[in-house]
Every structure is written in structure tokens, then in C-alpha cells.
Design a protein around this nucleic acid. Structure first.
Length: 595
RNA sequence: GGUCCCGUAGCUCAGUUGGAUAGAGCAACUGCCUUCUAAGCAGUAGGUCUUUGGUUCGAAUCCAAACGGGAUCACCA
């Protein structure tokens, strides 16, 4: 498509010049796909030229149309409706473009861009298991990484694990008080779920103790500070920072259980990392940057010793970067970690996949790093995604409305299994093939469901209805791929080549529509990469699948009139399959050969 | 209250560098499996693009205000 458009754009510029428009006053020419209700393939909007030429848009359209059909080789006809010049493009141009597309092997990835991007995502707390919100984060981060890699960036995937702090101590306190030495092995529970159980336990203990204290005459606020489990958790945090051996030991043990659990979840999710950072190591970082900032005059110190930055020039307010007691706040260690990442990887860009509730935090962080003249400051990007809501609104752990990631994955794989069995097309699959298929379908469905929506937007998930397997879903796309694979298998048997080498004299509408869309693949990937949006790829993939299905339903492949036409349609199918696999690779969705 | 984000079919979402009569899927209703996989295809119905004003040849898209929803504004992380 790019070739066609570029060539036409040049011709249009020529046409305008021949009509007497000076070349330096010609605006950028943009062609758009012709709306289906009109005849034509590409449309030029002529209104912008009316002032340049002093003529009406229809007249201009007529003149440019005539120029293009007499001077160029692509345009075979045209019509002008109001100010819109609709151009018919010769079928052989589409076929040649697609051939060129396949020759370039763009379905394997775009040329190297010579830039490195670090993508930080997942970043879980080690006190509870992953939930639906984490799934969105992880799938976004993983697919963004694959998308950028596909688009030609060198990508580093980083996970900054929040493995310390008061929330971890809460689980530990509850475990010490009520755990009776329970372990994942003894309880049969996944490690992260076991630790999560004690985090919930802590909350129960805490509430009970607060109620008792209130009954004994304390105010609510006093009670919250005096509750013995809270006191114990705070003490434990102090002991942890002091390196008290038995606390460190317990911390390591319980975090170990959590990591085992997380690793199992990550594996099922198909998510992996190149680099792990741990807050237990990074939380001390950043204080030297505070000193540096004070010395440079970027920060200022108040009489009480606290350090601040004035961001009123940027439209924000004054922000604390170090407490009066000299301890760090969140942003202190984020400054330190930013430096650390750059020291480790010297990346050109750094993406943080973090929920939009932290928009303000990252705005502040990025401003600070710019003020500090960090060399990497201009490559920072916060991929801010919306939360996943339930029909009842926000997920609330206290109300038990959290959708657990492991449970959801299990349920969807089960749903995929039931549906597959109902349809009964997999009788010759062995047990291993079946379970792999259920996994691919179930996990794919969740991924697609979460990825097809623009990351920035909040989205809704209804747990009562499991994720659809019909319509705009991964399953339907996977099904299209399985159909294509069947075509390719049959073609193989008949010894028909899978790569395009025959040019049909004319195209059917469904063939042309599919081809025009296929030719937008590169453009789609580039757009998705620059928008940091896997959703662009997901929508493109669905449209590809839809157009193929339409082609598949309207045209016969192996019964086509001539052997050339059969070969062409086989090749068209095969190349569609390549595109679906490429999109699937970007989104982390496996395309099965059969289903 | 300040700042930021969002508001498109009954529901879930596309479409937003300004272009023609705003698109899919689900749900509802009609057709299509003796033929390459019907997890599909084709069709019907469903819209004052929250509202009002502005910018212009042209606005779902840009600007302003209002209304509605959400987030954030900690010496929390």
C-alpha cells in the first residue's frame, strides 16, 4: 500500500504543479481508503486545493483525476463526488504490492531502528496473589515489549518487585500469630495465595482489635494506632531494616513462596523478564540524588530538614523528595532506580507500565529528572492504563470482589475445553494436544479481551459471563488461522506452492478488500509502536480475520476456474496466516494449526 | 475545592494528525453446512456521537462552558 500511495502522492504533486501551483505551496497530500459505498480504492479530498487553484473542488477533482489516469500507470479510472476524487487502482498494482510485501518478509519484523527501550511492567507486591488488574498490566507490558521488538527496537523487559514494606510485614505478623508453621506444601496452596491468605488474616485481626479498643473507650483513630498487630507490623519493619536475622529469615521464606507462585502464574500467562529489580535493594537509592539536587539548586531544604522541589512553573505544586527525618519517600527511590536502570542499560527510551492512578506521580518524577538534566529524561514515558472495572464498579479486596488471576485463567481454559468438546472437531487429538489447545484458547481469549481495548481507557469485565468465544475474540481469530492452516495442508498435499507467484487477471471484491488491508500491516505496526498501543494491532488482526472469513465464504479456493487462480488463493490464504501469526506473536496469542 | 482522564447502538468497544450517509462484536430477528473447519458468512433492526455555544467549505474528532462518571492532590507505596 505504501508504494501505491507514495507513488500517487508524487503524481498528485506533479498534477498540481502542472496546473500552475508553485511547488512550495503544495500541502502534504493524504489519501484515504474509499468508503465502501462509493466506487474506487483510494480517495483524494480536494477541498484543501480550492484556495490554491481558485477553482471549485469538483473541477479540481476532475482535473487531477484526468492527469492521474493519463500520466500514471496505477489509476485505471476515477469518479468525483462532491469534492472527493475516488481513484480506481489497477488490480495488478495490488497484486504487485502484495508480492513486494511478501518479498520483504515484513511479517518477521521490521528493520532495526538502532534504539533500545526498557519496558518496566508487572511490578507486583509480594503480599498477595495477582488479580485481574495485574493481568492487564502484565499483558500490556509483555505485548508492548514484543510490539516494540517487532518494530525494530532492542527491548529490555524489567520487573521491579515490591518485596518490602509495611504490607509485607502485615502478612508476616499474621503468619507468626496464626500460621502454625503452615507451608505451601503442607497446605497444598500456591505460595502467593498462602501469603495472601495471611494478608487477609491480618486485616481481620486488625479490625477485631480496633473494635475491642473502641469498645474499651478509645477513639477510632487511636485504636488504629494502638492495635497490637499494627504495632507488631511497624516494629517488624524496623527490625527488617535493622537486618534482624529471624525476621530476614521469615521474610525470605515467605517471599520465596510468593515467587514460586508468581513464576507459575507468569509461565501460564506467557510472560517473562530480562531483568528483575527488588525494592529491598533499591529503596535506599536516591538519597545521593537529593543531595545533588540541593547542591544544584533544583531542590531546596526547609528548616525542619525536609527537602522539596518547586514545580509551580510546570503547573504543579511543591513536592516532597525527602522526609525531615532523612528517610526516603516513594519518589526518592524512583529517582535512584531511574539512574540505576540507565547505568545498567543505557536505553534511549524507558517505559513505565503503571496504572493511571499514578499519573501525577510520574508527571512529577519526569519533571524532576528533566530538571536534574538526566540524559535519559526525554525518553521517559508513562504508559498509563485504566483500571478494569466490574459491573458493580471498582474491584475491592476488602469486599472480596477481586477477580483472581489464577482462577480466571483456570476458568477460561475450562470454558474453552467445554466449547471445544461441544463442537466435537478434535476427536483425533491426543491428550497432550488437547490440553495444549485448551490452554492456547483460554489464555488467548483473556489476553485478547484485555488487549483489544485502548490501554488508556478503563474497561469493564463481567465475571458472571465468562469471556466470549464468538465474534470479536481471540478464539474466532484463532479459528480463522486454523482454517487457513487446513488450506495450506491441503495445498501441500496437492503440491501447490504457498508463496504467491501467479497474478490473476482480475480480482474479486473480497480478494481485493483483503489484500488492501494486508498491505496496511507495516503501517499498523508502526502506528501501534509509536502510540504504545497493542490495541491497534489487536483491532487490525480482527479486521484481517474478518476479511479473510468473508473471502473464504464467498470464493472457493481449490475449485477456482484455473490452476493459477487456485495457486493465487492458496498464497493469499497463506500470507494472511503469516500476518495473523505475526499479530499473535506481538500480542502473545498463539495461533493453532487445528481446532 | 485545584489538577488530570473519560462520556459513541440496550451492553462491550472501534473510529479522534478535522472529510462523504459514524463502524464492529454481543444480545434480538431472517437466511446459509451433501462442497476447502458454521468458533464462520450474508441480511434486518438498533445513534440528537452527554448538552450548549464557537472555529470552517466541512466537527464524534479542535476550542470554551455546563452536566454526568472516575482518578489524584500524604513527611503512603
Amino acid at each position: 500500500m505504501q508504494n501505491v500511495e507514495q507513488s500517487l502522492q508524487k503524481q498528485i504533486v506533479d498534477a498540481l504543479q502542472s496546473l500552475g501551483v508553485p511547488s512550495d505551496s503544495i500541502p502534504a497530500i493524504s489519501l484515504q481508503p474509499t468508503r465502501p459505498e462509493f466506487e474506487g480504492d483510494l480517495t483524494l479530498v480536494c477541498f484543501p486545493f480550492t484556495k490554491l487553484l481558485g477553482k471549485g473542488p469538483e473541477q479540481i477533482g476532475q482535473m487531477i483525476g484526468e492527469y492521474l489516469s493519463t500520466h500514471g500507470r496505477e489509476v485505471t479510472g476515477f469518479n468525483v463526488v462532491k469534492g472527493f476524487l475516488n481513484l480506481n487502482i489497477a488490480d495488478r498494482v495490488w497484486v504487485a504490492s502484495l508480492w513486494n510485501f511478501t518479498q520483504n518478509k515484513w511479517v518477521n519484523g521490521l528493520p532495526d531502528k538502532g534504539q533500545k527501550v526498557l519496558v518496566e511492567f508487572s511490578s507486583p507486591n509480594t503480599n498477595k496473589p495477582l488479580h485481574l488488574g495485574h493481568l492487564r498490566n502484565n499483558f500490556l507490558g509483555a505485548s508492548l515489549s514484543d510490539l516494540l521488538a517487532f518494530a525494530g527496537f532492542k527491548v529490555v523487559k524489567a520487573n521491579l518487585v515490591n518485596d518490602r514494606g509495611i504490607h509485607i510485614c502485615k502478612s508476616m505478623v499474621a503468619y507468626l500469630e496464626t500460621g502454625n508453621g503452615e507451608t505451601p506444601a503442607s497446605s497444598g496452596m500456591k505460595g502467593d495465595h498462602l501469603v495472601g491468605k495471611y494478608y487477609v488474616k491480618y486485616d481481620q485481626l486488625f479490625k477485631g482489635q480496633v473494635a475491642e479498643l473502641v469498645a474499651a473507650g478509645k477513639t477510632e483513630d487511636e485504636a488504629k494506632i494502638l492495635a497490637p498487630v499494627f504495632v507488631a507490623a511497624k516494629q517488624m519493619l524496623v527490625d527488617w531494616e535493622a537486618g534482624k536475622p529471624e525476621i530476614i529469615e521469615l521474610w525470605k521464606t515467605m517471599n520465596g513462596w510468593v515467587y514460586e507462585g508468581f513464576n507459575a502464574s507468569y509461565q501460564r500467562m506467557g510472560v517473562s523478564f530480562d531483568k528483575y529489580y527488588y525494592e529491598s535493594n533499591t529503596y535506599i537509592l536516591g538519597k545521593d540524588i537529593v543531595d545533588e539536587g540541593v547542591a544544584k539548586g533544583v531542590f531546596y531544604r526547609k528548616e525542619d530538614g525536609s527537602v522539596w522541589i518547586d514545580l509551580t512553573e510546570e503547573g504543579l505544586d511543591h513536592k516532597l523528595v525527602l522526609r525531615s527525618d532523612g528517610t526516603s519517600v516513594y519518589i526518592t527511590q524512583d529517582m535512584g532506580t531511574a539512574d540505576l536502570k540507565y547505568d545498567d542499560f543505557k536505553m534511549d527510551r524507558s517505559v513505565y507500565v503503571v496504572g493511571n492512578e499514578q499519573d501525577y506521580h510520574f508527571e512529577v518524577l519526569f519533571h524532576i529528572l528533566k530538571r536534574l538534566n538526566r540524559p535519559y529524561a526525554h525518553g521517559l514515558f508513562h504508559l498509563s492504563y485504566g483500571m478494569v472495572d466490574l459491573p458493580s464498579g471498582k474491584m475491592k479486596s476488602r469486599e472480596g470482589t477481586v477477580v483472581d488471576a489464577d482462577e480466571l485463567m483456570e476458568e477460561m481454559v475450562e470454558t474453552a475445553k467445554e466449547r471445544t468438546q461441544e463442537l466435537g472437531k478434535t476427536v483425533d487429538f491426543n491428550a497432550e494436544e488437547l490440553s495444549r489447545l485448551y490452554e492456547v484458547l483460554g489464555i488467548g481469549a483473556i489476553k485478547y479481551f484485555l488487549l483489544k481495548v485502548d490501554p488508556k481507557k478503563r474497561m469493564q469485565f463481567n465475571p458472571a459471563e465468562s469471556i466470549e468465544l464468538n465474534g470479536n475474540t481471540a478464539t474466532a481469530i484463532q479459528y480463522t488461522h486454523a482454517r487457513i492452516s487446513a488450506i495450506c495442508r491441503k495445498a501441500d498435499q496437492l503440491e501447490i506452492g504457498l508463496t504467491m507467484h501467479h497474478m490473476p487477471p482480475d480480482l474479486q471484491k473480497s480478494e481485493r478488500d483483503l489484500m488492501k488491508h494486508m498491505l496496511r500491516f507495516v503501517e499498523c505496526v508502526e502506528e501501534a509502536a509509536s502510540a504504545y498501543s497493542p490495541a491497534v494491532v489487536a483491532n487490525y488482526m480482527y479486521e484481517t480475520s474478518r476479511l479473510y472469513n468473508s473471502f473464504f465464504a464467498h470464493e472457493t479456493i481449490f475449485q477456482a476456474e484455473t490452476p493459477e487462480r487456485v495457486q493465487f488463493r492458496v498464497a493469499l490464504s497463506n500470507h494472511t496466516g503469516e500476518i495473523l501469526r505475526a499479530c499473535g506473536k506481538i500480542l502473545g496469542i498463539v495461533m493453532p494449526e487445528r481446532m
